[in-house]
């Protein structure tokens, strides 16, 4: 997946984040987390910018760190971020049929993680620590416990309907 560039980046915001972390090299991960929270992903230009602003870093190092950790996304995420837990407990209790049902509902094929309209993005995570409620799905921070293929379809449909009505 190639990283995306974006026009009209609010660099003042980036500077604010950088200074809140004292332009310190050891805070790079925290800085990237904050940038992603703000911009919903890590635009290539911002990574380059950070690499030139902090002493001891290069754009390549920043890119290296950003691509190492699963949390960072170089592509814009959807308005609704769906995380399907595929930890052991969830896997044993059937997280795969749930994942497939979501892919089907959202028309996502393998290798595609965000819907055309940018409304949903889908990812699997290793463990959310809510194993007692397996399998779980998290949509924008809200945990849906003991999911089934049918139940998750209803969740998605509800969000879709709410979006339609809202518009």
């Amino acid at each position: 997946m190639s990283p995306q560039t974006q026009v009209g980046i609010d660099y003042a915001k980036v500077d604010e984040i950088l200074s809140s972390f004292d332009y310190k090299k050891s805070n790079l991960i925290a800085i990237l987390q904050k940038v992603q929270e703000e911009f919903r992903y890590l635009p290539l230009d911002i990574m380059t910018y950070i690499g030139t602003k902090i002493e001891g870093l290069s754009p390549a190092t920043v890119y290296g760190v950003a691509t190492f950790y699963a949390q960072f996304s170089l592509q814009p995420k959807g308005k609704y971020e769906i995380k399907v837990c595929d930890g052991t407990a969830c896997h044993v209790r059937g997280s795969m049929p749930v994942l497939n049902a979501i892919k089907q509902s959202l028309n996502l094929s393998d290798g595609k993680f965000t819907t055309e309209d940018g409304l949903f993005s889908l990812e699997t995570v290793s463990c959310l620590g809510a194993c007692g409620l397996a399998p779980v799905v998290v949509v924008n921070g809200k945990v849906y416990p003991q999911m089934t293929a049918d139940a998750i379809k209803i969740v998605i449909e509800t969000i879709m309907n709410e979006e339609k009505e809202g518009k």
Binding site: G87, T88, C127, C131
Partner: peptide, 11 residues
């Protein structure tokens, strides 16, 4: 960094 999927005692 309780990364072991299926474990949540530290949490």
């Amino acid at each position: 960094d309780e990364g072991d999927p299926g474990a949540f005692m530290d949490r």
